[in-house]
Amino acid sequence: MELNDKDFERLEEIAYKIRRLSIEMITYGKWGHIGGSFSMAEILSVLYFKEMKVFPDDPLHESRDRLILSKAHGSPALYAALALRGYYDKEEIYRYCEINGLEGHTHIACVPGGIEASGGPLGMGLSVSAGIALGLRRKENPRSRVYCILGDGETNEGNVWEAAMSASHYHLDNLICIVDYNKAMAKGLIWELMGIEPFYDKWKAFGWNVQEVDGHNLNEVYGALYKARWVLANGKPNVVIAHTVKGKGVERAEFNYKWHTHAPDPVTADAMLRELSITYGREPLGYSKLNIKENKHTFYGGE
């Protein structure tokens, strides 16, 4: 299943905007994870603007598809996608990491129906997703799907494999897990810190349908999600292993775990955003709040 040209361009534009808004909110909010937000920009673009059925005007609509961001530190990209999809005004993103604003790690109370669960500690989201999938079964809701985005590093956690075992035990084929396999964790590359390979075989052995795609290729991501939803209703849960690049889109952050948690200063953010626009063949466009006073602050993060 391939996207038509119009959809392809539209989704590419969304992925670009997700990255832009992520830098804007991380810089202004003085905290956040650029690397893990950028690696799943295409995944979120396809999910929220093509694959998932959502109702931003009635966010808790029963027949919506649910998305759980298990890697809850990737919140900037999700907040950006929700803003672009119309869950709230785009200006809301500048309340990222502010009191009564958008929490640093995704929290259910921040955007009911948009953020479906509370997270932060890694390895927990797939269990919650399996519970939701089980709940949908109990409610005899055959339409809705549960999407869970896992980070690769969090599959070090035993809880992930407990969840994988139970999803297959309960035949949860309404559960679609996407692993953002960006190869880098907080303090190093995954094969240096704790290798997860053979990754495909692990999921297979746990009884899942497994697909492997280039997570930055919109057509491949869409094709796999379409297949998981419409073709593989065979009583097995689905996982799409999306090979991605941490920090994809800005050279200094690519494959660079130093940008795992790191808020850029406004000048650096400006340069990153200009680079991003050039990469996407746009007119250079910098940081929108470069000359605003509140930017004079202490920056957190880094190594």
């Binding site: 669960a117 797939l126 269990s127 997703s129 399996a130 139970s166 035990h169």
Partner: peptide, 22 residues
């Protein structure tokens, strides 16, 4: 629902079921 000897997963799944109104 039997979750086997996997308490972390059971409590996570409980959260998911509660989100769906159970």
């Amino acid at each position: 629902y039997q979750f086997g000897i996997a308490e972390q997963n059971m409590f996570g799944a409980a959260a998911g079921l509660a989100i769906e109104g159970f």
